[in-house]
Design a protein around this nucleic acid. Structure first.
Length: 550
RNA sequence: GGGCCUUUAGCUCAAUUGGAUAGAGUACCUGGCUUCGAACCAGGGGGUUACAGGUUCGAGUCCUGUAAGGCCUACCA
């Protein structure tokens, strides 16, 4: 039980009821204590009394317990400010060490099943920086929800059927014929030659019996897919399942969806095509399911896919680029039409990315031909900085990727600020081994007794204050995970780690860890170890390395 | 025209979902290594949170309107 939970329980006992309806939060300023509650102001409205009176009553009831609450103060207009007792902090630090690499994490698979689908790019070209952002946000969200106890599985939907594949086959075949010296006609519908050419060449190297356009298209598609997989895993993006759209057609699931929509009269024929009554579900117009030439649309297959996913998981999260938001209403509408709860599907839209290079913003535009490939940026900045920069800001915000800053392998790069804190912690323990202090290894088992941490508080004012700030920050971590998970905001973990690293660096500058004071040294080593645990656990969620030296 | 998203320091972003004096990094200026890693720390300047109303003890946060920007608005995906 955290110190906060203990204090909450104490207030609830004093009031003889739950206080879930009020806030009990860490304060921004030290003058307001360590944590504060607005309970008196909330109750004042209900009871039509002066909030200060209520606050003072509560104050009297909860003080007189030095170990948990060392000081209580009432402030206008009715806040109750609480200073946490040293003993409670020491006990909490003991918990951190007992949990170790599980600190902050909820028990695995203790919550509902969630299936997260992300990236799902067409196997028809290179991944661009926008995909990169979706990939990083998606994988961090997978890690984050897992950390919060959800049973998460991740999936990449492969659009290996239909228009894009036809286009790819046509492009590849034309290149193939051209390589064979045959006269060809290039179409403006084709993919750029320079994009597809390397794959055609590779296909030729691997397989000499290319006979048909379909045959070549399949081979090229598989090669592109393989390249995407390799590229993604090079910055730690891995999926539990790669789901093929073709399978949905082969298994007749697509056909079944169409049949049901027709049966329920949500589909009708018009001008040779089959339409879904999307307008009935709030869309601006009805949407085509089957084109007049008989081919099915992306929408129809996507409905079938989401139904397939719903059968496998209680809750779905689908991550799309912001340019796809127009598809949300029709997809959810179709699910609803077929009797599924559309609220089980949560779509997260990731806004677009532009790039800043040498001070100039380069906007991504397919038309202008300024598509920025993942590979280009990744090779320049490395996986850690790549992930950090793409996760740092919220998915709702457009972001500018500052290439110049990300490239810097030095102090200006924020990812190093966090990693450096971790490396510094590790370095202290290396230093200990070389020191003349006689501290045995078994004396540095921090998960036995909280007494060792009480030594931390025997320090001067400045040191005490830096120590306490650092401890409180560490202890914020579990709640930070829960809130980040609830809000689908993995970027908050990045911000938290930056704050934690800052508190650590400040502490480190003023408080010498290894000294002749053996008891204080042991306490501080325990604190440093807790910092190390917390940073490592946080970076794990972000998929960023926690180096022991750099 | 309609829909989704955004607007916070010169720049890139935070702000515990309605809390107290809006914070970091960067850039600029100043100072700090004969002691655990200076990839660090301390100090300084920089803000009418786009604008105008509203809701209440209290608004960057919620509501309405206005303005600006991005994306979408196909029998493409």
């Amino acid at each position: 039980m955290s110190y906060k939970q203990k204090i909450k329980a104490k207030i609830e006992k004093a009031l003889n009821g739950s206080i879930d309806f009020v806030s009990l939060e860490r304060t921004k300023s030290k003058e307001h204590g360590d944590i504060a509650t607005n309970i008196a102001m909330v109750l004042a409205k209900e009871q039509k009394r002066n909030p200060l009176d209520i606050a003072n009553e509560i104050k009297e009831k909860i003080k007189a317990d030095e170990s948990l609450i060392s000081h209580v103060e009432v402030a206008k207009p009715g806040f109750i400010n609480i200073v946490v007792g040293d003993f409670a902090l020491a006990e909490s630090l003991l918990e951190v060490h007992k949990l170790g690499s599980d600190f902050g994490f909820s028990p695995t698979n203790s919550k509902e099943k969630v299936l997260i689908e992300y990236v799902s790019a067409n196997p028809t070209g290179d991944l661009h920086i926008g995909h990169g952002r979706q990939a990083v946000i998606g994988s961090c969200l997978v890690n984050l929800l897992r950390a919060d106890g959800y049973a998460v599985s991740s999936e990449f939907y492969v659009n290996d059927y239909g228009e894009q594949i036809t286009k790819l086959s046509d492009t590849a075949w034309t290149i193939f014929e051209k390589l064979n010296g045959k006269p060809v006609q290039w179409s403006s519908d084709f993919y750029p030659e320079e994009l597809v050419l390397p794959y055609v060449k590779k296909a030729l190297e691997q397989n000499k019996n290319i006979t048909t356009k379909e045959n070549l298209g399949q081979i090229v598609k598989d090669l592109v897919l393989k390249a995407q997989k390799d590229l993604l895993s090079s910055f730690k993006i891995n999926f539990d399942k790669w789901f093929s759209e073709t399978d949905l057609h082969v298994s007749k699931e697509v056909e079944a969806v169409l049949k049901k929509l027709k049966e329920k009269n949500f589909a009708y024929e018009h001008e040779g095509a089959v339409w879904f009554r999307a307008k009935d579900f709030g869309d601006v117009r009805d949407r085509v399911l089957i084109r007049s030439d008989g081919r099915s649309t992306y929408l129809l297959a996507d409905v079938a896919y989401h139904i397939d996913k719903l059968k496998r998981s209680g809750h779905l999260i689908t991550i799309w680029g912001a340019d796809h938001h127009g598809q949300e209403v029709s997809l959810k509408g179709a699910l609803k039409a077929l009797g599924y709860d559309e609220n089980k599907l949560e779509i997260i839209f990731v806004q677009l990315v532009s790039l800043q290079k040498e001070g100039q913003e380069v906007k991504m535009s397919k038309r202008a031909g300024t598509v920025i490939p993942v590979e280009e940026v990744l090779n320049e900045v490395g996986a850690d900085a790549f992930r950090y920069f793409l996760i740092e800001s919220h998915s709702d915000n457009r972001m500018v990727f500052d290439m110049d800053l990300a490239k810097k392998q030095d102090k200006d790069n924020p990812v190093y600020y966090i990693q450096y804190a971790h490396a510094r912690c590790c370095s202290i323990f290396r230093q200990l081994e070389q020191s003349e202090l006689k501290i045995k290894k078994e004396e540095l088992n921090f998960s036995l007794n909280s007494n060792i941490f009480m030594n931390l508080f025997k320090a001067n004012n400045q040191e005490y204050s830096l120590t306490k700030a650092l401890i409180l920050r560490i202890l914020d971590f579990p709640e930070e995970i829960t809130q980040a998970a609830q809000n689908r905001s993995p970027n908050r973990i990045a911000n938290y780690l930056k704050d934690l690293a800052c508190d650590f660096h400040q502490f480190y500058t003023s408080c010498r860890v290894i000294s002749n004071n053996i008891e204080l040294t042991k306490g501080r080593l325990g604190l440093i170890e807790a910092v190390k645990i917390t940073i490592a656990n946080g970076l794990k969620i972000l998929g960023i390395e926690a180096p022991t030296a750099m």
